[in-house]
Design a protein around this nucleic acid. Structure first.
Lengths: 345, 345
DNA sequence: TTTAGCACTCTCAATACCAGAGTGCTAAAA
DNA sequence: TTTTAGCACTCTGGTATTGAGAGTGCTAAA
């Protein structure tokens, strides 16, 4: 396609077309451009430029005698070179930060809240994955007596996650004995990974072996769960968008949110590369997402405790704003994680 | 409306109309009824009966020269008197039970799994609330050292729920000291409700007071959270239904799943009255649900640990099957809860 | 009480038509 | 060489028309 870069004026026109189309959802005519924005040129000139931009692949027409709308390539150029990267206004920052800090919560509720705030601020659907640590390590374990021969095993993992599991004991044990055992095992396995614990099992017997079995398999399960939980919110926001009048588009959004496989790939990439990624209409790679765009950022502490959060909406999305908000929220969430667990990583 | 009850033949015809309409989603004609099911009467006779059923409010026509479709009242009569209440086939029971017992999980994952199974078996959207106990009581608390002056507080509640909370200590404490404190406090507050703990606080000082503060406010927060978490699944299933071709209907479903207020009322009622409830097209009370039906059942142990699970779909739903599956799943879930925590209630 | 027959009604799809919007192109102007 | 005015052309979206098909309601006979 285009070898030479776009002229100044072409850039301006492309930017205006994108912005106008995002605003109105209707094809943009040359007249609209030349009249509402005063470029000092006539509609005919704009028309010529638009024809050129179409040849270069940045614009297209729904039909011969309609205005132009951006192509995926057009959006791509826009987000990479034309979009003004404004920070959020201080008052907006304050509002979000206020929503976010109003309560002391647990991790899963923070995540849910993030999804809600994100959805609310962008007026789109949102998506937040739970932070995932590379390979989880045991921090502490505790045994709590429930009945004579039933105990609740609690695992505290490096990174602050807590898992619990019911255990049926081979023999009755008092809370006191359980305590002592738990303490011994904590000393034994502190910092250990699932495989290290599993490896140490053949030398163990009795309760130690039993607990070790459960602990390592629980940790393995966590490690294996490649896709951590996904929280989402704000579906209602985008349902009103004209592109989702027909259920075809909605299906794509819901699939994007419900089907793990798809999101996992994206998340994987974001986690690996960091920064805020923008996926426009599936970018040719994901046919299932042809009608939606995703703005996805990474949050977390260091490399070992990271997750992704972002916005899902129609391709005709206000990318600038979405990026700002995703970036801001990611930072908030990262700070939060750092305050909670950062010290240990 | 109808004072005299329907004749045998009218009942049969009403049943056939409902079943046929559920199957095909198209208005049912008198000819279809008299031909495909051999009633031994002509279409004209059926026609007369249908006209009568319409007068009585059980059927309606989309327009004058179309077939009939059931009204909400028609569906209501159907589910209450005409529907065959088949149990699930043994093989289906086995299949579900197999999906359900394949893994050892934690409560929240059981709930998620239930939603998935429910959605899958009914080919509709599903909805599962977390079990809620009347007023939560403390079972056990534990303090785990994270840094010198930072500890992780873990609350185990009666009923098996586990909550954790980060705590910044006024002074450095060793894991040992924390253990002893936790043990003392567990003895002190075992079985206590949030308000009891709060009431005992004025007499306390230092760490005890600090922990007590956090514990009781955390428990209050849980009690206050009238609507427990809601898990849902299977939106994709019903998106293909013809009644949801236009986004109007989909909005209702998503609203039903996302907006707490609405579901909370229903859940409340189901929890209070037990059994499997069927809400058809909002039943006049909920205008926001005019296009969807909900089949909702209660599960749980005794009165103190109960939740609701059910199916959300188009009004044109296979109620019989939905009821069977919801009932079966509720029982499975109740059994599970009983195995896990039942002993204590 | 049931049924055959028939006129009537309404939908749905196809077709035609028209106004409006927007383009592409040409030829003149800058 | 670039810009612009002017104009013919194209395509959409709305409205009106038509005809076939499906299904009903009603009447009169069985």
């Amino acid at each position: 396609m285009a070898r030479k870069d776009l002229t100044q004026r072409q850039q301006i026109i492309l930017r205006l077309v994108v912005q106008e189309y995002v605003r109105t959802a209707a094809p943009v005519s040359s007249k609209t451009i030349s009249e509402t924005y005063h470029l000092g040129v006539s509609s005919a000139t704009v028309r010529n430029e638009m024809a050129l931009l179409e040849q270069l692949g940045y614009l297209t027409q729904p039909h011969t005698s309609a205005g132009r709308i951006p192509t995926e390539q057009g959006y791509r150029y826009f987000v990479e070179r034309l979009m003004e990267q404004t920070d959020l206004s201080p008052e907006e920052q304050r509002m979000i930060s206020h929503q976010f800090h109003q309560a002391r919560l647990e991790l899963d509720q923070w995540l849910k809240l993030s999804a809600a705030v994100l959805a609310n601020a962008t007026r789109n659907a949102s998506l937040v994955t739970a932070p995932k640590s590379e390979q989880c390590r045991l921090k502490h374990l505790e045994l709590i007596s429930i009945q004579e021969d039933v105990a609740l095993l609690i695992l505290v993992l490096q990174g602050g996650a807590v898992k619990q599991q019911i255990l049926t004991l081979d023999q009755a044990m008092s809370q006191d004995e359980l305590h002592r055992t738990a303490r011994r095992l904590t000393d034994l396995w502190a910092q250990a990974t699932a495989s290290r614990i599993a490896a140490s099992l053949p030398n163990q017997t009795g309760l130690t072996a039993q607990v070790g079995e459960v602990v390592s398999s629980a940790m393995q399960r966590i490690d294996a769960r490649r896709s951590s939980d996904i929280y989402h919110d704000g579906l209602l926001n985008i349902l009103n968008q004209p592109e989702f009048k027909q259920q075809e588009g909605i299906q794509q959004v819901i699939r994007a949110l419900e089907e793990r496989r798809l999101v996992d790939q994206l998340v994987e990439r974001v986690l690996k590369e960091g920064g805020v990624h923008i996926i426009i209409g599936g970018e040719g790679q994901w046919r299932e997402l042809s009608d939606v765009s995703i703005v996805l950022g990474r949050y977390g502490v260091g490399d070992s405790l990271t997750g992704a959060m972002g916005v899902v909406g129609p391709v005709r999305m206000t990318y600038g704003r979405a990026v700002s908000i995703v970036r801001y929220m990611s930072r908030l969430m990262s700070d939060l994680l750092y305050d909670l667990y950062g010290c240990e990583n």
